[in-house]
Design a protein around this nucleic acid. Structure first.
Lengths: 162, 162
DNA sequence: CTTTAACCTGGACCAAAGTTGAGGTCAACC
DNA sequence: GGTTGACCTCAACTTTGGTCCAGGTTAAAG
């Protein structure tokens, strides 16, 4: 009862990339991609094939849930980096790092609610007087990253231009 | 008092691309981009320069607010296409097309709230038992577009795998 | 009439989050 | 021991929302 699967010499609690893909619902190419980005790690067999610890399944699940929440991969990776490297993460570890997402979600829900509530005032009324408009005030950091627009809505619009 | 600015022969309620950029807070390159995408339109002078109707200011403001809400440009364009082409859109027109964003925001706020409330159950507890997890159920359409992952979180994860 | 600022086009480039394909190897089954 | 399916790497391509640059033209002011 203590023997692992006798078909394989190396420790068989490991998963191939195909196994991990099947069990996590993430494509093989995405797993390769996550590995290149340092979000997951693997051992290599003598034949250069990847073998993942079962623990990786939980990491991948965390990645997907985090993406669902709207967190970019880079941030997810940073969070994963705070997990202990010397031991298998515990429930407490996962609770800690997911707490940040909870707070993030709170903030974004609040932001969207504000936006929704002012939408009627601003576009809804047809005036779009952005100088006075609540939507004008950049309360958020949504569009700060990347090569996007440098300015959000700034003033300069007429009280009733156009 | 009825004369327009005598310096210019053509109707001077028009804006140059620089005017529009300054007044909307959107860069010239972005305005060119919007025009290529059909979100805004311009007349050309004899010297091939763009001239925008003042009404365009309101369109651009609508575009920016919509992006703030999180709507992709293609959808914004589709909404703008429903505006009347034969007359200047009225307050009622703007109210109508912004109503869709309001509903969209409602839906997304609801979705994020669900996600937040289940986050603690799922990651927070450390189990990540995605087969039973509320996060597993694809209630949304967030990740349906583009060359992204074909599958969200699907079942196949162990009750307590890894 | 000249100068200068603003305009024009086209193409290259950025990031994110992967996918797709070519060309080649590995492993497991019969 | 051969076939088949899974695996490997590397590079190119995708989408969205733009920016930046080169090389050339226009418009307005002096």
């Amino acid at each position: 009862m203590e023997a692992v699967n006798p078909n394989v010499p190396w420790d068989r609690d490991e998963l191939t990339v195909g196994d991990l893909a099947a069990r996590s619902g993430v494509s093989v190419s995405a797993l390769h991609f996550y590995e290149r980005k340092g979000l997951i790690a693997s051992r290599r067999t003598s034949g250069n094939q990847r073998r993942y610890r079962r623990e990786t399944l939980r990491r991948v699940a965390f990645i997907r849930v985090s993406q669902r929440v709207g967190i970019p991969l880079a941030d997810i990776g940073a969070a994963l980096d705070t997990l202990p490297g010397d031991r298998t993460p515990t429930a407490k570890d996962w609770r800690r790092i997911s707490q940040a997402w909870h707070d993030d979600l709170d903030a974004r829900i609040e932001q969207l609610s504000r936006l929704r509530d002012h939408l009627t005032d601003c576009i809804g009324c047809g005036c779009l007087s952005l100088r006075r408009c609540a939507l004008t005030n950049p309360h958020d950091e949504l569009a700060e990253t990347g090569p996007g627009p440098r300015t959000l809505l700034v003033d300069g619009l007429e009280p009733d231009g156009a």
